[in-house]
Design a binder for these strands. Structure first.
Length: 419
DNA sequence: AGGTATGATTTCAA
DNA sequence: TTGAAATCATACCT
């Protein structure tokens, strides 16, 4: 009880502060211990209204107060005890595993880490995420993805910078404050260090939030742009038809050139890499089970034949030399030209066979189906039913060779389409 | 629900 | 880099 009174008195004295009346106030307050705390509070509050000069003057007065050394030593003692008890609580912080995980993730995604150019890490990550699929990756989505990722990266870095700046500013501020205060109360450099560490910890927890939300954003972006590609959607009927038409009319060499792929992609409203995928799948699946595709092959052969026939019919009707422009139903000028070229190649250079007899012997059988198709298409005027009745494509031709490339020497046969 | 078809991805070789 | 082959993952059909 008595102690308390004395403390209050001390407080009041520090609050009131004017050197002369400290003793008076103590005496006064000892006399009437219940002297309002309100009064003291008022005195404290009054400080805020003081001008800076006044405050400085009071501070100076405090520093010169005769009680100051005594008070200081008491404070030192109390401090020693509390600091010792605090010390046990907050030792050095262990490296936070979660923040490390986030850092790794951001690095892997190309958000953090070196930010040169478009962000090489980001580009690599995007490429990796795009999958090692050969050929051009579907342009639009990826540039879009990269742009969005760059945006995230930019925001992340600017925010991070802001945080860092704020952190250092605040740290400086606190250090100055502490240094200032160290004149009136005991503050060891170690304490300042600890304080700085606390501030840093606080800020790093804010940073962690930033990193976390950045990670989330990247994940969402990824799932929206990249993983979405895995969600398979069948091509529409028209697209499959276009692709199949090309495939079966180029059965001897179903390797569309880059230009042809582009054209097909445009026609089917899909990407070039999707065209590549489709042909890759088609080739392998056709080869694996030709029997299964027989019907389909016939169907498209008829289709092609009908198209070609209608073209030739139109041409003869118009009584003009057949200039094979792409026919009625948008059939391929490219495809027919290619096969015609192959036929022309065989027909026009019989003398060359001597030189490359073997090669031509290999070429001829595999070309036959298409030659047949062409022949029938151009020379049969009626009776398509005959076509459907017999197998237009003889599977064993492929079986014997087991590979398009082995037998057909595609680059030489269809040089028209590939070169 | 289970089987098949099909677009995409991965791995490997040339 | 491209394509073959294997495989995955999903759509679609029964």
């Amino acid at each position: 009880m008595d102690d308390q009174t004395r403390m209050l008195a001390g407080l009041a004295g520090l609050g009131g502060l004017s050197q002369g009346d400290v003793g008076d106030s103590v005496r006064k307050q000892l006399g009437q211990p219940q002297q309002d705390i309100g009064d003291i509070l008022q005195q404290i509050m009054a400080i805020t209204d003081e001008s800076l000069d006044e405050a400085q003057a009071r501070k100076h007065a405090l520093n010169c107060h005769r009680m100051k050394p005594a008070l200081f030593s008491v404070l030192c003692e109390i401090k020693e005890k509390t600091v010792l008890s605090i010390r046990g609580i907050q030792d050095e912080d262990p490296p936070d595993p979660q923040i490390m995980r986030l850092d790794n993730m951001l690095l892997a995604e190309g958000v953090s880490g070196p930010e040169k150019g478009g962000g090489s890490a980001a580009a690599a990550a995007a490429a990796a995420a795009a999958g090692g699929s050969p050929g051009a990756d579907g342009g639009i989505e990826h540039s879009d993805y990269r742009a969005k990722l760059a945006q995230i990266r930019q925001i992340y870095h600017s925010e991070l910078e802001k945080y860092e700046q704020a952190c250092s500013e605040f740290t400086n501020h606190v250090m100055n404050l502490l240094r200032e205060q160290s004149r009136t109360r005991p503050i060891s450099p170690k304490e300042i260090e600890r304080m700085v560490a606390i501030i840093h910890r606080k800020f790093s927890s804010i940073q962690m939030q930033l990193k976390q939300s950045t990670c989330e954003a990247v994940m969402i972006l990824r799932s929206r742009f990249l993983d979405a590609r895995r969600k398979r959607r069948n091509f529409n009927k028209q697209a499959t038809e276009v692709l199949n038409e090309y495939f079966y009319s180029h059965l001897s060499n179903p390797y569309p050139s880059e230009e042809a792929k582009e054209e097909l992609a445009k026609k089917c409203a899909i990407t070039v890499s999707q065209v590549s995928n489709w042909f890759g799948n088609k080739r392998i699946r056709y080869k694996k089970n030709i029997g299964k595709f027989q019907e389909e092959a016939n169907l498209y052969a008829v289709k092609t034949a009908v198209d070609a026939a209608s073209v030739s019919a139109q041409a003869s009707q118009a009584n003009s030399p057949a200039t094979p422009k792409s026919g009625s139903s948008g059939s391929y000028s490219l495809s027919h030209a290619g096969d015609a070229e192959a036929v022309a190649y065989l027909g026009l250079r019989p003398s060359n066979l001597n030189g490359a007899g073997e090669a031509v012997l290999n070429i001829a059988p595999s070309l036959q189906p298409q030659v047949d198709t062409l022949h029938r298409a151009t020379h049969l005027t009626a009776g398509y039913e005959e076509l459907t009745a017999s197998a237009l494509y003889t599977p064993h031709r492929l079986h014997t060779s087991n590979s398009w490339q082995d037998t057909t020497h595609p680059s030489s046969v269809t040089s028209g389409t590939r070169l």
